[in-house]
Amino acid sequence: MMIRMFPGLRAALSMVFVFGLVASASGQLQMNYYAKSCPRAEKLVQDYVREHVPRSPNLAAAILRMYFHDCFVRGCDGSVLINSTANNRAEKESIPNQTVRGFDFIDRVKSILEAECPGIVSCADVLALVTRECIVVTGGPSWRVPTGRRDGVISSATEATNNIPPPSSNLTTLQRAFTNKGLDLKDLVILSGSHTIGLSHCSSFSSRLYNFTGKGDQDPAMDPKYAAILKSKKCRNPNDNNTVVEMDPGSFKTFDLSYYSLLLKRRGIHQSDSALITSSSAKAYVTELLKGSQENFYAEFALAMEKMGRIEVKTGSAGVIRKHCALAN
C-alpha cells in the first residue's frame, strides 16, 4: 500500500534524517569521556603542556595549525600524525604540512598517557586536548573539548593537498573548503583569528611581494608600505624558504584582536588573510569583532573551535586507538 506524504511532512522527516546523520557522527563525543577509563588523562595533558610550552611559546601556534590541518582531512582523527611508509605518502609529506611542526610533542604526551592507561586515549583526542591547553597557557581562550574520538588509519598526502586551503586562497576557495567541512563564513572569519599568534615562512606569501601575477608585480591588495618593510627587512629574497615572519607583527605572542585590525589596514600577510575583507559579509564580521571586546572574541573562538573539533569524527566502533600516533597500527 502506498502512503501519501504531504510535502511539509516529507521535508520535516528529511530534516530529521539529516540531523540524525550529523548527530550520529558526533553524538558519542562527551565531556569527561575518560572519567572512568583514564581519570587523570586530561590533567596529565594539562600538566605537561603547562610545564613545557612556556619554554617554547611558538609551539602553541604550531600545534593549533596542526589541529586545523588534521580536521580538514578525513575529519579530526589524528591522521596528520601518521608517518609515511614505503607504500604510502602520508599527510605529513604534503605541501601544506611540510612546515608543520610539533609532532614529537604530541608523541611525548601520548607516551605519558600510554604509560598511565595503555590503549585507552586516542591520538585524535590527544591532539584536541593539547591544542586547547596550548592556547590557554599562552593566555588565549579555553573551550569545551568533548572527547571520545577514535583514530583513523588512512593518511594521504594527496588528500591533504586537496582539502587544506593554501595561504594563496581567495575567499571563494576558502569558503568552499570550510563549507565542505560544515563550517560557515562566520566560522572562517573567527578561526582565521588564530593567525593572531605564530609565524609564517616568507615562501608562503613571497609571490605577493615579488611576482603576484607572474609579471614581477606586487599584490595591490597589500598595503605598499607594509610590503616595502617586508621586502627590505624580512623577505629580501623572493626564493627564501627559511626566514619566518610574525603573522601579527608586534603582537604575535598574544591571542588578541590585533590580527583583525591589521586586516582593515591591508596588512594581512597571506592572500587568504586579505581575502576576509574582499566581501561585505566577511568584512562585516571582522568589523563586528573589532567593535566588541576581547572576551567576546574569545567566546566566539571557543564556539568555532568546538564546532571544528566535531568534523567527521570517528566514534564507537569506527576507527581504532593507535598505540603510537606516528604509526597506523
Rank of each mutant, 00 (worst) to 15 (best):
R132K: 14
D107K: 14
M222R: 08
D223A: 09
T138F: 02
G140C: 04
M305A: 10
N242R: 00
F68S: 04
C76S: 01
T131W: 08
M305I: 01
A299V: 10
S168W: 01
V49D: 07
N241E: 04
F252Q: 06
T131V: 06
G250D: 00
A124E: 12
R101L: 13
L13A: 08
G214H: 01
V145T: 12
N97W: 00
P146R: 02
N329A: 15
P7R: 15
L81M: 14
N83R: 12
V80K: 05
I164Q: 03
V121A: 08
E246A: 15
L183C: 12
T173W: 00
V126L: 12
L263Q: 03
D256C: 08
M15H: 15
F19Y: 04
E300Q: 15
V245H: 10
F68G: 07
S207W: 10
P118C: 06
N239K: 05
A302E: 12
F6R: 14
G250V: 02
P165Q: 00
R310N: 08
V145C: 11
V130E: 06
L13R: 01
W143V: 11
S168T: 07
L29Y: 07
E91N: 10
N163L: 03
G216D: 02
A61C: 01
P57S: 06
V137Q: 11
I82P: 14
P224G: 10
W143K: 12
L9K: 05
Q46K: 06
S207T: 11
A23H: 09
S293A: 09
G292M: 00
G268A: 07
V22S: 10
M1C: 13
T172V: 01
S155C: 14
K253T: 12
F252C: 00
V100K: 02
V121Y: 08
F17A: 15
A299M: 08
N163P: 02
K36W: 01
L230R: 06
I95L: 13
L129Y: 01
F17K: 05
E288H: 06
L191T: 04
S192G: 05
M5L: 15
R144L: 05
A12K: 09
H69A: 15
D104K: 14
I190F: 11
L185G: 11
